[in-house]
C-alpha cells in the first residue's frame, strides 16, 4: 500500500503476533523494499548516516521510557555492529511526540492499538518521491500487549529488544525474509523455527533468541549499505525458476553454504521466474526452491501478485559456485507440480 501525501510517499511494514504484512513491493534484488517511480525501480534506503532517532517519553507496565530507550539502543547497536555494513544510529533524545506523526523525526514508542490484536509493532516510512531516500521512519509498539526488557526474558511478555531488532530492520529498508518453518494448527499458524530476524512471525512471549542477527539479515543489510569491501569480498547467485517451461513467480529460493551452514534467500520476483541473491560468501552453494507456504503471502507480496504455490520443494542438481566479487551466471532450475 502506498499513497502520496504532500509530495512524499508513505509505506508501512507491520510485525504482527501471528504475521507481518509488508505492503511495499520488494525490489528486484534481494529482500529490500522498493517501489516503482515512473517506471524505475527505486530501493528504499537512508542516504545519510547516522540515522537520528527519538523515543517517546511514555511508559507502560514493566517498561519505563528509559528501559525502552536502552532496549532500542541495544537493538540499534546490533545492526550497527555488522562489520560488512555501513550503518550508524544516534539517539536524539526523548520526545512528547508519538510515532506516526509527520514531524521529521524518526520516533519509537508505544501506542495502544487494541483493535490490532495480532500486531506487535509497526514501522511507517516517509519517503522522498524523487529519490527513494528515507526521510523519516517511525516504529510503534502496541501497548495492548505485555512487554518486557528483562535480561532473560519473561515468559508472559514479549521481548522488546527482539521485536525492536526486527522493526529496525524495516527502518533500515529491509523487507521480510521467508527463512522459517511454520505449521498450521487449529489455533492458526504456529512458528517452529526462524532463520532470520526478518521472518514475519515472532516466536512467542518470553523468547529472547531474536536478539541476534542471522546470515540472511547480515547479507541483507550489507547489500543495502555495503561497506568498502563488501561487494568485492562476496558474490551473488542468480538465475531463473521455471515450471513446465514457464517462469514461476514468488518461488522462495534459498542458498545454503555447505561449508558454513549459512542460509540466505530471496524470491523469484518477475513472471519469468528470475531471482538474484546477493551478499553470499564465495564458494559452492546448494540451491533449494520451495513454495511460499510458511507465512501469509501478504507478508511479502501484494495480494494481486500471481504467487505460484503449486510446486514441490526442489534441490537444484548442481552445486553453484559463487565467485568472489562476481555472479554465478544464470542458473536454470526446473520445478514440477
Amino acid at each position: 500500500m502506498s499513497f502520496v501525501r504532500s509530495g512524499r510517499s508513505v509505506f508501512s511494514a507491520i510485525l504482527i503476533a501471528g504475521m507481518i504484512c509488508g505492503h511495499a513491493r520488494p525490489a528486484l534484488a534481494y529482500l529490500k523494499f522498493g517501489f516503482d517511480l515512473n517506471g524505475r525501480q527505486v530501493t528504499l534506503r537512508w542516504n545519510t548516516m547516522p540515522v537520528r532517532y527519538f523515543v517517546t517519553n511514555q511508559a507502560v507496565a514493566g517498561v519505563s521510557a528509559a528501559d525502552f530507550q536502552a532496549a532500542a539502543a541495544r537493538a540499534f547497536a546490533t545492526w550497527q555492529a555488522v562489520p560488512t555494513a555501513a550503518t550508524s544510529y544516534v539517539f536524539g533524545g526523548f520526545t512528547a511526540n508519538l510515532p506516526g506523526e509527520d514531524d521529521g523525526r524518526s520516533t519509537l514508542g508505544f501506542l495502544n492499538e487494541p483493535d490490532l490484536d495480532r500486531v506487535l509493532a509497526s514501522t511507517n516510512y516517509l519517503v522522498d518521491n524523487a529519490t527513494g531516500a528515507l526521510l523519516e521512519a517511525d516504529i510503534f509498539f502496541n501497548s495492548a500487549f505485555a512487554w518486557s526488557v528483562a535480561a532473560n526474558g519473561d515468559r508472559s511478555r514479549w521481548d522488546l529488544e527482539s521485536i525492536a531488532l526486527h522493526e529496525i530492520g524495516h527502518l533500515n529498508g529491509l523487507g521480510h525474509s521467508a527463512i522459517g518453518e511454520t505449521e498450521m494448527t487449529n489455533s492458526g499458524r504456529h512458528v517452529l523455527s526462524t532463520g532470520a530476524i526478518m521472518f514475519p512471525i515472532a516466536l512467542g512471549p518470553g523468547d529472547i533468541s531474536g536478539r541476534r542477527l542471522d546470515a540472511d539479515d547480515i547479507a541483507g543489510i550489507s547489500d543495502l549499505y555495503p561497506d568498502n569491501n563488501f561487494n568485492d569480498d562476496t558474490g551473488s547467485l542468480s538465475g531463473r525458476v521455471t515450471k513446465n517451461g514457464r517462469g514461476v513467480f514468488g518461488a522462495h529460493v534459498v542458498a545454503f553454504d555447505p561449508a558454513r551452514g549459512d542460509l540466505v534467500a530471496n524470491f523469484t520476483l518477475s513472471t519469468n521466474g528470475q531471482f538474484s541473491i546477493a551478499g553470499l560468501q564465495p564458494g559452492p552453494h546448494v540451491i533449494r526452491v520451495e513454495p511460499l507456504d510458511d507465512a501469509d503471502i501478504e507478508s511479502f507480496f501484494d495480494p494481486a501478485e500471481p504467487v505460484d504455490l503449486n510446486f514441490r520443494t526442489t534441490y537444484y542438481e548442481r552445486l553453484v559456485i559463487v565467485p568472489r566479487g562476481g555472479d554465478s551466471g544464470a542458473v536454470q532450475i526446473q520445478v514440477s507440480p
Binding site: I179, G180, E181, V191, L192, S193, T194, G195, L203, G204, D207, S209, D214, F256, P258, A259, R260, G261, L263
Partner: peptide
C-alpha cells in the same frame, strides 16, 4: 553441516 534455524 546442518541447515539450522532457531526455535523457541
Amino acid at each position: 553441516v546442518n541447515a539450522n534455524e532457531i526455535s523457541f
